[in-house]
Design a protein around this nucleic acid. Structure first.
Lengths: 239, 239
DNA sequence: GTGTTTTTGTGTTAAAAAACATCTTTTGCC
DNA sequence: GGCAAAAGATGTTTTTTAACACAAAAACAC
């Protein structure tokens, strides 16, 4: 049920949109749903289009209805680090609002994406009235924090090969594969791979080539096919 | 109102303990407080004593009543990375429980500490009944996630001097200073400094010496005094 | 006190990764 | 198609940092 940007008009038939918000629709009363529908907006983003930027004031809970999104942070010398990726259907963009901060990260579309946005004030009201919704977001935040801590250590302590192997497996986990179980369904640029793996673009290109030579993966443009997952896992573990 | 381990007996006079749990006492009814008091336990930990370990099943919400605690993760080749530090009076140890995971980090006392523990099942009940308590923990998780993401980028992209400068400033932020406003109130070993800053102990020692030579800090054993904070900030920013 | 272990300090070498320089290929655009 | 710009590829050099080796000092045990 992939939904391309051209079908955006269909998404604005709001009942359809709601069917894609599992936690919301499961938990809310009909009256509450109506409230959400009244103010929700749906918008398409082109590939690489920015969604929000570091320093922006968070005003909406976002939900990725279709497509893929990267959450990243610009660091020293303009080098970006991808800290999280979002897959459909997932909520995002709420951390800053719940922390009562401005965004400390930026978000952009990995590929054409459709995103629903719900004013954060309404979400706050719903959470206060509805413990189940509170638990849902607490759970998500807690899981994300554990992943972020793990990521810190992986990115700092592993060597280049380990970090790149980890990123390939991370993309498989996050976005899955074709029917063959081996070809990633996300097509990151070499620069994206570098920004995932904390290395320069040159080193991402070089190390990917080495992995191809070693028979661990094949490359077809930006398409990555995993040939020897156990070996990648070993490289990732060893660092 | 510092409380050393010898005064533990006083802490078990439960009303006193409760006075130290601001969010709990502000938010709970008298009946709920009684519930917490009935099952809460208080325990002292010696310097460097482990509090919980990676892989442990989380069973309690912990609250640091006095002392200092480090949260860390063991990485490649046994090298530890300190991901967070806890100051009195702060809650910790709840992330894994809320994520329904085992601990992915370990905790140990930086110095002699006194810690209260409340069964996590009770906390879950209280949160479900009490939206304010839910908000409190959501807020803490959201803030911690933002910090963790920032830390990832700082530790990966900055060079040794930048990382060490950042750690010194981080310790000042986290634990404060003496009355002079310059001498840190925490006394980390060189190895702790290395584990905070993602470098080897040798490099932590060496780089601290360089900072002394440059007149940025003075060292007296493990006591760190900041002489030129603006310069440290600049080094931290530049990477 | 004395011996032992841990922590701290310093110099040297080796490995890893970034920076740089070029070149090729692909992509987008008129 | 043809041009410009972006992305990908690869080799070389330089910088950064870890690893190693060893010495001195401090903390601890007896």
């Amino acid at each position: 049920m992939y939904l391309c940007a051209e079908k955006l008009i269909i998404m604005t038939k709001k009942e359809d949109v709601f069917g894609k918000l599992p936690e919301m629709s499961r938990v809310l009363t009909m009256e509450e749903r109506e409230q959400v529908l009244d103010v929700m907006e749906v918008r398409a983003y082109r590939k690489n289009e920015p969604i929000y930027s570091e320093g922006d004031v968070p005003s909406h809970l976002l939900c990725l209805l279709s497509g893929k999104v990267k959450i990243y942070k610009d660091g020293v010398g303009g080098r970006a680090q991808i800290v999280r990726v979002i897959n459909a259907v997932e909520y995002f963009g709420y951390r800053a609002a719940f922390a009562e901060e401005n965004y400390v990260t930026a978000a952009a579309a990995f590929e054409s994406s459709v995103i629903a946005s719900i004013p954060i004030d309404l979400v706050r009201q719903l959470i206060t009235r509805n413990p189940q919704l509170a638990w849902f977001f607490m759970h998500r935040l807690a899981v994300a924090l554990g992943r972020s801590d793990a990521r810190t250590v992986n990115l700092t302590q592993k060597h280049i090969r380990g970090r790149l192997a980890e990123s390939i497996l991370f993309l498989k986990e996050s976005y899955g594969t074709d029917e063959d179980g081996k070809t990633l369904t996300v097509y990151p640029s070499r620069e994206d791979m570098a920004n995932l793996s904390n290395m320069t673009t040159s080193n991402a290109i070089r190390t990917l080539s080495v992995f191809v030579q070693e028979g661990l993966i094949t490359l077809d443009g930006r398409k990555i096919k995993i040939l020897d997952e156990p070996a990648l896992q070993k490289i990732s573990r060893m660092g």
